[in-house]
Design a protein around this nucleic acid. Structure first.
Lengths: 341, 341
DNA sequence: GCGCTCTACTAGCGCGCTCCAGTCGAGTAC
DNA sequence: GTACTCGACTGGAGCGCGCTAGTAGAGCGC
């Protein structure tokens, strides 16, 4: 028994065993015209027999193009999971391969992107990048780049995101109609979309004559941030300042953390306090009582991202493009009328 | 302005611009002895200037080895995210590159693995594979394979998993000590570890003289499965059969689904019913009241998996190995004494 | 001077594949 | 018969790199 995996068979092996030239084997495996059905069969059979599989490193090297899209994402970001699930089928449909590279503790965005580029990805799709516009612009000059979830105004980068303003506006209308006035926003710091969401929150508060109630608690797109904000609000309550009646969280994860903290402190949602999230990631349906949130269509966003990348690769699009999708408020169990309202 | 990314610079470009041979550039980039500090500096500077980065496809092709580990995981499986986070640093420490390939809808395990092998991964780490032992054995013959989370008894595959029996036993002791007798298990079907967990559940029930209460509801490792089981139990209650006082879920996701369904029906946890999960994935801390669950140490498991793969690659280990880690019950908010207990 | 070693560097083959420019032979038109 | 077409197939260059064998030149002892 040979040692596992050593000396994998090559085209030459297949060619020899099938009594044809290497080029012919190549033709068969690329599914190109130029081989008779009989030979085609024989080659495929022989290949299967000796366990041949094309080596994509060599393949990449030989043809100029790699037809590979690199995707940078963050493990643990449930919304990214939804996006990745949408990217695979669309890429396959267009004949592209997908390589994933995760950011994680001790593995920053630059490292993840370097890995992708090193593996000859022709384009990079960045999910919720946190990079500086300048760096993104530089990246966009070096390769084709698409940012999902974050607008990148003055860089050579396509972007796909939702109309954050619209989403927030819908959420705010919903809360105001329910009778809420003390609506606090936990923002997403430098996270994707948060600047726009913050701005829309402020605008909505003013529009409804609630500027005196306007309050933004700095945060980020993590559960911890929701927990921290929750603790802050609870501590303030213990010192006499009343709780707000509703909270607009920066995203679903933040909302989750907040809900956990509230539940532990005996604050009942939505009776005592309404909470609205953002993303409608897989998480949202799974909460004991469904999370009221602003839905971003992950599959559609993924498809746009892939198509942007591919079109730019194949048609040499010049101007940076932007896809702005409509979000949609999804009312579930965490929002209701304010206490005493 | 050139079109983006086209014609990336090669070693030859660097060599020419620096006035040295290609080989010397290669030496510099591999950090090998044989170049004077001055030349080294110059080469690196020139490379940076023209934006050269080594092409890993060519690199893979040229040296026999790719030093790349492939990881198959399931997007949406929070525990996999924890594992992936552990894999990166350990692989880097040992000088290996990591390639991720996700299973998703319409992208089965075979497809994901093919992608990895096609990209010349030397070893494949399978997170929670659902493949048949026979197929795994075949894979183990073709390449180095490590299964995380699932035992693979008679196959040429290393495996890393926790002592499921121990974990379940701890959970059961905990529940029995609290006074529970009607303890139902929602199992994980063919999911990783579920056979062992089911067996341990049965054994524990018998050991405590509760064989008459023994009940396994078939399920799988998803939220939906928890939801379905919850609905089943509630429907039965409405037909006069009392609820169990405790449920041991197949994993955390299943527990989540169950909790959601219970909450919607007004069943209060843990007052009316206790729920115990399994995994201690990131999820568990995030629930409004923390989930009592059996902790599997993801980082440790990841490290074992990487080390198994690397050792097998470098030292030609022959026998399949198995790492069995100790799980640990983590008591949080979803378990308490039974109603009236 | 010679022979030796040691460092700094280079020439060139080969990794497994794609792709272009052919070749070869059978078929068709006149 | 010649001239041509067309499908099936082959040869060989080259993708960007790693690596081995080798060279040039400096330094040193005698």
């Amino acid at each position: 028994m040979e040692t596992s995996g050593r000396q994998r068979p090559t085209m030459a092996d297949v060619a020899e065993k099938a009594g044809v030239s290497r080029a012919l084997v190549s033709i068969v495996f690329r599914d190109q015209p130029g081989a008779s059905p009989r030979t085609r069969d024989r080659v495929l059979r022989v290949a299967d027999e000796i366990g041949y599989r094309p080596d994509s490193a060599a393949r990449l090297l030989a043809r100029g193009r790699s037809r590979t899209l690199g995707v940078m994402f963050t493990v643990r970001q449930p919304f990214h999971a939804d996006l990745v699930e949408g990217i695979y089928p669309e890429a396959e449909r267009l004949g592209y391969d997908v390589l994933l590279s995760a950011t994680a503790q001790g593995r920053g965005e630059d490292k993840a992107v370097e890995a992708l580029l090193g593996h000859r990805c022709e384009a990079v799709i960045l999910l919720g990048t946190d990079a500086q516009p300048m760096d993104l612009d530089a990246l966009g000059h070096r390769t084709v780049a698409v940012s999902v979830g974050r607008r990148v105004p003055h860089a050579r980068v396509d972007s796909v995101h939702t109309a954050e303003g619209k989403g927030v506006r819908q959420a705010m209308e919903h809360l105001v109609e329910l009778g809420h006035r003390g609506i606090v926003h936990i923002d997403g710091g430098r996270g994707p979309g948060s600047a726009e969401r913050r701005r829309a929150y402020r605008a909505a508060m003013r529009r409804h004559g609630l500027e005196r109630e306007l309050r933004v608690i700095p945060g980020e797109h993590t559960e911890q941030s929701g927990i921290d904000a929750g603790r802050l609000l609870l501590a303030e309550r213990d010192h006499g300042r009343p709780l707000p009646t509703a909270v607009l969280a920066g995203n679903d994860r933040c909302a989750m953390g907040l809900l956990m903290t509230l539940a532990q402190a005996g604050v009942e949602v939505p009776r005592d306090l309404s909470v609205v999230g953002y993303d409608d990631s897989h998480l949202s349906h799974l909460m004991p009582i469904g999370l009221t949130t602003v839905r971003q269509d992950a599959v559609l966003m993924a498809e746009y991202a892939v198509r942007f990348a591919v079109e730019r690769l194949e048609n040499a699009v010049s101007e940076p493009r932007e896809a702005v999708l409509d979000p949609k408020l999804t009312v579930r169990g965490t929002s209701g009328p304010p206490p005493g309202g």
